[in-house]
C-alpha cells in the first residue's frame, strides 16, 4: 500500500535499519559503566550525539536525548520558569499545548493559510511577565512553514528565549537559527520511534524538568534505547545528505496534488465531504484548522517521503476525486 502519511512518521531509512542491527550487537550495555561493554556503549552514544549535533549545526554538549518527540517538546517548554507567561502560536502541536495547559499562556493567531501573525507575536513577547515563546517550525497538520527567523529576531529583541518545535523540519529543510531550545523527533526523519532530540543552546536559562536529572549531563533520566539513538543519527546524516534532492523531487509532486485535488474538488463544487479532523478521542475539531478559520471537516492530509514515487502520487490522484464523489453521492450531498 502506498504510504502517504510521512507527517505522522516516515518509513525507516535503509541506513537506519542497518545501523540499528549493528548497534544491537555491541550497544546494549549501560554507557555510564566503566567495564569494556559500557565503554563501547559510551562510544556509540557519544558518536550518535556528535553526528546529530553536526547535522543540526550545534555543539555536541547542547544535544540531549529524550524518550520521544513528545517528551522533547514538552521538556523544551517545561524547562523554563513556571511562573512566567508563554507566548505561542495557535497551531502548536497538542503535545506542547498540553504541557503548558496550567501555565499562563498567550496564543497568537494565524492567517487562513496557517501562518502565524508576526506583528502580533512581536507585540505579545514584549508584554510584561512573558518568560518564553514557542513556535512550530512547520505545521504538522497543514504543512505551512512558519516565519521562524522573523519571530526569532522579535524574541531576541525582547530578550525572550524561543523554543522551536522542529519535528516536521529536521532532516528535510533547514531550520533558521536564533532559537534557544529546539525539539525534534527521529521517526519524522526516517529514524526509529522513541528518540526525541532536544537542543539547548549554551547560556539558555533552561533547567531539566525531570526529577533526578543530572544538570551536567541532562539527558532525560532512564536508560535510553542506544541502538535506536545510533540508528537515528545514521538516518539524520543520510536524510541531511538527501534533503535538497528530495525537496526538489517532492515539492513538484506536492504541487501536483494541490493543483489536481483543488481543481477536481472545485469543479465538483465540493465544500464538505465525509471526512473529519476531529481528534478521535475528543470529537473536538482540530485546533489548527479552527485557528485558520477553515472547515474542520472534509480534509485529507497527504505527506510525502523519500520512498514516495511519482507513480504512487498519480495513482492516488487518479482515484481520489472518484472516491470523494462516490462518498458524497452515498451521503446524498452530491449537489451541495
Amino acid at each position: 500500500m502506498a504510504y502517504l502519511d510521512a507527517a505522522a512518521g516516515a518509513p525507516p531509512h535503509p541506513v537506519a535499519r542497518q545501523a540499528l542491527l549493528a548497534a544491537q550487537e555491541d550497544g546494549w550495555a549501560d554507557p555510564g559503566k566503566l567495564y569494556p561493554q559500557g565503554r563501547r556503549a559510551r562510544q556509540l552514544l557519544d558518536a550518535a550525539r556528535g553526528a546529530i549535533a553536526d547535522q543540526l549545526g550545534v555543539r555536541a554538549d547542547e544535544v540531549l536525548f529524550c524518550a520521544s518527540g513528545t517528551d522533547a517538546v514538552q521538556a523544551a517548554v517545561l524547562g523554563f520558569r513556571a511562573g512566567a507567561t508563554i507566548v505561542h502560536s495557535a497551531i502548536e502541536h497538542s503535545a506542547l499545548l498540553h504541557a503548558v495547559a496550567d501555565r499562563s499562556a498567550v496564543s497568537v493567531p494565524v492567517d487562513r493559510l496557517g501562518r502565524v501573525d508576526v506583528a502580533a507575536f512581536t507585540a505579545a513577547v514584549r508584554e510584561p511577565g512573558v518568560g518564553v515563546a514557542a513556535l512550530i517550525s512547520a505545521s504538522h497538520e497543514v504543512g505551512t512553514v512558519q516565519p521562524v527567523a522573523e519571530v526569532a529576531a522579535a524574541c531576541a529583541a525582547a530578550g525572550i528565549p524561543l523554543v522551536v518545535d522542529a519535528a516536521q523540519s529536521v532532516g528535510r529543510v533547514p531550520v533558521p537559527d536564533g532559537w534557544a531550545v529546539l525539539a525534534a523527533s527521529a521517526h519524522k526523519w526516517g529514524g526509529p520511534a522513541g528518540v526525541g532530540v532536544l537542543v539547548v543552546h549554551k547560556g539558555t536559562r533552561w533547567v531539566p524538568p525531570w526529577p533526578g536529572a543530572d544538570p551536567a549531563a541532562p539527558d532525560q533520566p532512564g536508560t535510553r534505547n542506544l541502538p535506536a539513538l545510533v540508528a537515528a543519527a545514521a538516518a539524520l546524516r543520510a536524510a541531511g545528505a538527501e534533503a535538497d534532492a528530495e525537496a526538489r523531487r517532492l515539492y513538484p509532486l506536492v504541487e501536483r496534488i494541490r493543483t489536481r485535488v483543488a481543481a477536481s474538488l472545485d469543479r465538483a463544487g465540493f465544500a464538505v465531504s465525509s471526512g473529519s479532523s476531529c481528534t478521535s478521542s475528543t470529537l473536538r475539531p482540530s485546533h489548527v484548522l479552527e485557528a485558520m478559520g477553515v472547515l474542520s471537516h472534509g480534509n485529507v492530509r497527504v505527506s510525502l517521503h523519500r520512498d514516495t514515487t511519482e507513480a504512487e502520487v498519480d495513482a492516488f490522484l487518479d482515484v481520489l476525486p472518484g472516491l470523494v464523489a462516490d462518498l458524497r453521492a452515498q451521503a446524498g450531498v452530491a449537489g451541495l
Binding site: 465544500a271 464538505v272 470529537l283 475539531p285 472547515l295 471537516h297 451521503a331 450531498v333 451541495l336
Partner: peptide, 8 residues
Amino acid sequence: QRCPLPVI
C-alpha cells in the same frame, strides 16, 4: 447532530 451534518 454531529458535524458536518449541520453544515450539510
